[in-house]
């Protein structure tokens, strides 16, 4: 191989004598085609390939962002519904308490009224009975005077044989009594 490198130089690339990567006779064609192919690659990438890949990635990103936003919206909605439910629950509870309190007050008032009425009736009955009793007592006391006067005139007539006037006897009884 060392011998061939010495021989020819200018005939072309194939037998080129120099170390191939440094053989300047191939440079023009390498450079020429590199420019063409690299320009083609650049155009293909920037016009065709990269926009497609970018579109795929952007579409996925959009989808994910949209899904996340929708999930957040649904979560907010759920929280609002839960709050509304809790509010109506507490409202209902307060309402029930109010009704219970109202009913209790009403019943208590009714009971108190009945009690007072009953007390009044009883008091009136007691009073009437007491009056009746007092009247009877007074009547009895009057009869006692008469009986005492009769008894006294009887006793006097028995003892003395003298007649005693009824009025005098009553007078005497009254004076003794007092």
């Amino acid at each position: 191989m060392a011998t061939t490198t010495e021989t020819t130089e200018t005939t072309g690339h194939e037998e080129g004598g120099a170390f191939p990567p440094l053989d300047s006779s191939t440079f023009p064609s390498q450079l020429f085609w590199l420019v063409i192919f690299f320009a083609a690659l650049y155009l293909l990438m920037s016009r065709l390939v990269l926009p497609r890949l970018a579109a795929i990635i952007a579409a996925r990103k959009g989808q994910i962002d949209g899904d996340l936003a929708r999930a957040q919206a649904l979560k907010d909605e759920t929280e609002a519904a839960l709050k509304a439910y809790e509010k109506s629950l507490s409202d209902a509870r307060a309402n029930a308490n109010a009704i219970a309190l109202d009913t209790r007050n009403k019943v208590t008032a009714e009971i108190d009224g009945e009690q007072a009425k009953l007390d009044g009736e009883l008091a009136a009955k007691i009073k009437a009975a007491e009056e009746k009793l007092a009247k009877a007592k007074a009547k009895a006391m009057e009869s006692v005077n008469d009986i005492a006067a009769d008894s006294a005139s009887d006793i006097v007539s028995q003892l003395t044989g003298a007649k005693v006037l009824k009025t005098a006897a009553a007078k005497a009884v009254a004076s003794v009594k007092n």
Binding site: H13, P28, S29, Q30, W33, L34, F37, L41
Partner: peptide, 16 residues
């Protein structure tokens, strides 16, 4: 300048 299409240039095309 010689701008012959060589094996190197063929592979440039294959790369693209």
């Amino acid at each position: 300048y010689d701008i012959a299409f060589t094996n190197s240039n063929l592979f440039m095309g294959i790369i693209v």
